[in-house]
Design a protein around this nucleic acid. Structure first.
Lengths: 179, 179
DNA sequence: TTTTTATGTCAGCCATGTTGACGTATCTTG
DNA sequence: CAAGATACGTCAACATGGCTGACATAAAAA
């Protein structure tokens, strides 16, 4: 009899009760995963944040410098698509970066309305300085978790992205064209 | 001669040159992981954000409601330790939540200076509404990546946390006392 | 009794997001 | 070619959620 009860609980069939023990444990694990994501993300951005503060810049500038560095010649519209902020928000950040000669704009040859963005030398150097500690943190986190872990980790991260945007994110990060 | 050069590059030994092919591939993988974390986190918070907006609340309120719900009776000082914001920032958010009767304070019995925070019924209901889509997203992301993936995922996330705080984070998320 | 601690509060500043309106150059299309 | 659509920029006003500094109160601890 005890066997029947146990196997019923474990099998997951015939679940009319509010919560089985299994469900509770799953939910608990889920909450832990969510809280971990919160704490991990916080520390993940903390290294660049500290560097940026010394330069009088913010997280927003980091994001722009990162994606421009990674996609040289990206247009303003494409960058807006990645960052998902309004052009007015981007304009402010971009203006500061251009004033400080960290980013430069080149008028498009095929379409002269477009502005293609590039890092200057100083911009490249800033990008590197921001990347170093962040890369170190992530590389160590992955390495310490074992080599197979990286694959699973990426799979879950991609699954967290809205389903209809996963393909675009994938081509973007693999450095295909900006979708 | 060509062989010597190639094997030197591939073996990773004697690395006086700037970058080997292996290093480049690793770095590329690292950047992808970092960008994925950015996109994943953005969508991860988007569901609650949409709900909160309708209630005239923000992300900051969500965090408070979450951690109070998860740690009933938590004190203000403990909550500050988790959120890592100033008491003035927390006070503003907390005041609104108390005014809207989503959170209530109870004076400590052992130490009457302390305020122990609890969700009201309305607060609990809000917490659930915010949690539902977020739980669904994460649960599906993990499930679709295979059952072993969850372990790797948590391991890496914990490794991303500052080393000297990992123990505290672990006891916190496993619902031991608030460290 | 004095000092420290837990909490609250006022006032002002900053970074980064938002909406709405408008302007200009350039490409595209009827 | 003229008209409309597109890419980008800009001004103004506002919201959110951080921050610092200063000060207040009640209660615990020394």
């Amino acid at each position: 009899m005890a066997d029947i009860k146990t196997s019923t609980l474990a099998s997951g069939s015939d679940r009319t009760m509010a919560d089985s023990g299994e469900n509770l444990a799953e939910k608990e694990a889920l909450i832990q995963a969510i809280e971990l994501l919160f704490f991990a993300y916080r520390d993940f951005v903390s290294d660049p944040d500290a560097i940026l503060e010394a330069d009088g810049l913010g997280r927003a500038h980091h994001r722009v410098v990162h994606f421009v560095g990674r996609n040289p010649g990206i247009t303003v519209a494409e960058l807006l698509g990645i960052l998902r902020i309004t052009k007015q928000s981007l304009a402010r950040v971009l203006r500061e970066l251009i004033e400080q000669e960290l980013i430069e704009q080149k008028t498009g040859k095929r379409d002269r309305r477009q502005r293609h963005l590039h890092l200057t030398e100083a911009g490249t150097s800033l990008e590197r300085r921001l990347a170093v500690p962040q890369h170190a943190r992530v590389a160590k986190a992955i390495a310490d978790a074992g080599p197979e872990a990286a694959v699973a980790w990426k799979k879950i991260l991609l699954n967290l992205v809205n389903e209809d945007e996963r393909a675009a994110v994938e081509t973007l990060i693999t450095n295909g064209e900006v979708p």
